[in-house]
Simulated assay, not measured.
Amino acid sequence: MKQIVMGIGSLASPQWLPGADSQADGPRMHLDLGPEHPSRTGLLLIQAQCRDDAGTPRIESARVQPGFSHRSAEKLFEVRDYRQVLVLADRHDWQAPFIGELGAALVCEQLMGLVPPPRATWLRTLLSEQARIASHLAHLSFVGFRLQDEALVRRVRQLREQGRELMLAVSGNRVHPMLNRLGGLSTDLDSSQVEAFVPWAAEAGECARELARAVVDSALGRGIAILDRATINGYSLSGPVAAASGVRTDCRIQTPYLAHAQLQDELLAHEILREQGDAASRLLALADQVITSHVLIEACARHLQSVTGPVDTKLSKNIKVPDSEGYLAIEAPWGMAGWFLVSRSERTPWRLKMRTPGFANVQALQMALQGCPLDEADVAIASLGWTSGDLDK
């Protein structure tokens, strides 16, 4: 048995990994998941005990160490007014910032009894699916990088850039849109802006099919890092990770919000539950969801042709949420994102707690890595996604 310390993230020197146990013996590895992968923005350390199995090093046990980019977002919520809360929420998962600000807005609106205009609801649905595609493409960029397929890497990079340009056109910001407001959106999208998302989403769907074929043809992740149903339930895993093990957790189906109640036919027709629960299935589940999001964006664009009216609700500058508490969960790219708000009728939350799916994924890494060949550890890790803000909240 020997110990190896693996660092995932952008490091100046792979020979030195900060935060590792100074008493650890054995080599230290720097795992690179690719220039487009979200892990580049932050650091995660894994201390792994390895054994030799017929000449193949395998991970016997693993201890995951997050927290190096701790942001204290939940404490900062307590000293920000409700408009500023949305700004912070936008930044905790910067691969899908619209969904972060949306979750914070929805839980506040729930306690305020505030119902946004119908057009705002449909636009929010479209934009949340755009964010899902953008996030999944970032994580799926690992496939082309790992297989050294430059054409696939380039295609994913171009699609991600086109997605940023679409958000720039509607919000004035390529990365952090800040479109949500309590009671709706900050701005309307005209018909040409709405329609611009459709061909982009269609191309993303085709790219997802190409990525899925690459995973299947190369057997990337097949049979490794298996998570069974008991582990899924034990770690409260959700989203594509749960779907890859045959467990349905999709909040858009289980507890519909926004316009998802009207989109059940599209959601159910394209829902795929896989049974293998391995790393390959999780990568394929991401591709499945990109295709579903394309279908939903097309449906939203069709509905928005006949849904007119305002997209915001006029509110006082001094916003206070009634003395109450409530919980709301939405479907973030990696699964259930929960928001628990406690208000004391002040301008700032008394407590605003986030349940992030990336944190649950990293907790489950220690189980997924057991028995995994050391040279496929990067595949196992890439199949359980997180971003630093989402993980180190």
Results as ranks from 00 to 15, higher is better:
D288F: 06
D288L: 07
L284N: 07
L263R: 04
L315A: 11
L296H: 00
E298A: 15
S306Y: 09
L268C: 07
L273R: 07
T292F: 00
L267H: 01
D312E: 05
T313M: 05
D312T: 09
D312M: 02
D312A: 10
E266R: 06
I291H: 00
L284F: 09
P310K: 13
D265M: 04
K314T: 12
K317N: 15
I297E: 00
L267W: 00
T308H: 12
H260Y: 15
A261I: 03
A280Q: 15
P310R: 15
V307L: 08
Q264W: 00
R274P: 11
G309T: 12
R302G: 10
I291D: 00
A261S: 11
A299M: 06
Q264F: 02
I272W: 08
R282H: 07
I272V: 15
S281E: 13
V290N: 05
H260Q: 04
Q262M: 14
P310Q: 15
V311G: 02
A269R: 12
L284A: 11
L267Y: 01
G277C: 13
I291N: 00
E275I: 04
L268T: 02
H270G: 06
H303A: 14
D278V: 07
A287E: 03
L286A: 11
R282M: 05
Q289G: 10
H303L: 09
L268N: 08
A280P: 07
Q305T: 12
L268H: 06
C300Q: 01
T308C: 08
L263C: 05
